[in-house]
Design a protein around this nucleic acid. Structure first.
Length: 193
DNA sequence: GCGTCGATGGCA
DNA sequence: GCCATCGACGCG
């Protein structure tokens, strides 16, 4: 498997988010390497997207989203949880993909079934904000043998975003048992066998 | 299993 | 006064 390099991330969030399902997240903490298979993401598609933080304008917090793709956008929510995103799109077009859930690999026991739980277990914090996600301590691997089924649903926790709350911008591997709890999958959103 | 609530801090 | 959340708690 090969490390995903910066050009991989340089595309619209609506394309990057489903492309990240099945990819391997690699985190090194001191000497140990932890790997996890991404099973749930959300796309935040630009300044016109009322759920995207950049819709409020360019601030210290959202600045990284206006920069080049492939950098981490990590912010604190509810005073307690860091949210891990990867910047997508082009410079000055603020887009990002939130990594919401993953399955631990290599017999590593962890609950990564939610964006706050994932960052806590992997010790991803605001200290990682604006770092390219191509470094030795934090990066992704392609996983070409993994061809997950995909399902799309509305995004979680953005009821304030008016018409945008209905957009199908959350992507999951519907066969995973590690989707963010209470929002696993709506049976009505599955189709096919 | 479900709904409800509070923790807790940065931000506009 | 909000939050791109989570775990505890009360149900029955």
């Amino acid at each position: 498997m090969n490390r995903l390099e910066l050009p991989f991330y340089s595309r619209p969030a609506i394309e990057l988010a489903p492309a990240l399902i099945g990819k391997i997240l690699v985190r090194r903490i001191r000497r140990k390497v932890f790997r996890a298979r991404i099973v749930e993401t959300e796309a935040y598609v630009g300044a016109h997207d009322l759920a995207c933080h950049a819709s409020k304008g360019r601030t210290n917090r959202t600045d990284v989203m206006f920069g080049p793709a492939g950098r981490a956008y990590v912010y604190l929510i509810y005073g307690m949880y860091d949210m891990f995103n990867i910047v997508a799109g082009e410079i000055d077009d603020p887009q990002a993909v939130l990594i919401r859930a993953a399955e631990p690999l290599d017999a590593w026991e962890a609950d990564l079934s939610g964006p706050g739980k994932l960052t806590r277990a992997l010790q991803i914090t605001r200290a990682d904000n604006a770092l390219p996600v191509t470094n030795d301590r934090l990066h992704l691997l392609d996983n070409p043998a993994d061809r997950p089924r995909l399902a799309a649903t509305p995004r979680i926790g953005i009821d304030y975003a008016r018409e945008w709350k209905h957009e199908l911008l959350r992507f999951v591997d519907p066969t995973s048992s590690a989707l963010s709890s209470r929002f696993g999958l709506d049976a009505s959103q599955l189709r096919g066998p």
